[in-house]
Amino acid sequence: LTAPAQAQIKLSYANFPPAPTFPCVQMERWKTEIEKRTAGKVKIDTYPGGTLLGAKNMFDGVAAGTADIGSTATSYFPGMFPIVEFVDLPVGWPSATVASAVLSELVEKYKPKELEKFKVLTMFTCPPANIMSMKPILGLEDLKGYALRASGTGAKILGLLGAAAVGMPQSDVPEAIQKGVIKGNVSSLEVMKDFKYAEYCRHVTSNVNLFVVSFAVVMNQKKWDSLPADVKKTMDDIRMDQAIWTGRYVDNHVKESMKWSEQTHNVQVYKLSPKEISRWDALLKPMIDTHLKDVEAKGLPAKAILDDTLKLKEKYSKQFPD
């Protein structure tokens, strides 16, 4: 065995969802790319499925050095990431690719104070959340009092729309849907295939694009400081590329999942008219206003961030149509 000329740098990378999910797929892609681009100088051990750190412990764990790198959803920490939260607002994201690109650029520009303690390696989002249900949801009237599961931000949005929002951890959802405890789920649509929700939810309302969940991949700052300049450069260079790659990957995964659902389980897909969607938007507007006020109170340029978010959304929507 011939060891590489330079001593290897070993890094540990923790992630919370199971290995086949997209946050872990992007982790493996990042690992492969970095190992390749540094020609074996850096070796990365990955820990999917919360085997090293759970979602809520990720930031503390990376700060303490339990893992060198960690990936978690900032959306699980309401109020903690005011700038990132602009992306979590119901502004009608067309795809994960667009939302991920915007998120990365926003973070680049405003350098959120709450992420200062870490080195941000990349940021991305899940695809826009839509409705999978046991009966067709064709308008606000169908939603009224209907028991749908969503987590965090989603529950708030569903409440504003008049649905009966059920809070439930992801692990309980498959059985709850199977037994009919809940009548559907509101999340990005790749779960139709990944968790086999298509077996029970035969109706999908696919263009309401209610919200996205934002993710951050962070590295322990001390560890980052200890890395040689060329490795740092490699990691910096891949940052935006990784965000867009992840968005692309998971957007395609949603398409694949929907195709599978339609073919194998005869799932019906509905698209609401722009007029109907504007009714939904009107109900969700107050949420954006409240967030503006909250962030302004924190002394941040809320209006400017929102304008930037919307401007970037236009820009990247053109760059990544569909």
Binding site: P20, E175, K196
Partner: peptide, 18 residues
């Protein structure tokens, strides 16, 4: 069933939990 282990396996492998 119901079973915690099967749920974890189903979610991990994309198999139908039912």
């Amino acid at each position: 069933p119901p079973s915690v282990v099967l749920i974890v396996y189903g979610i991990q492998t994309g198999q139908s939990i039912g």
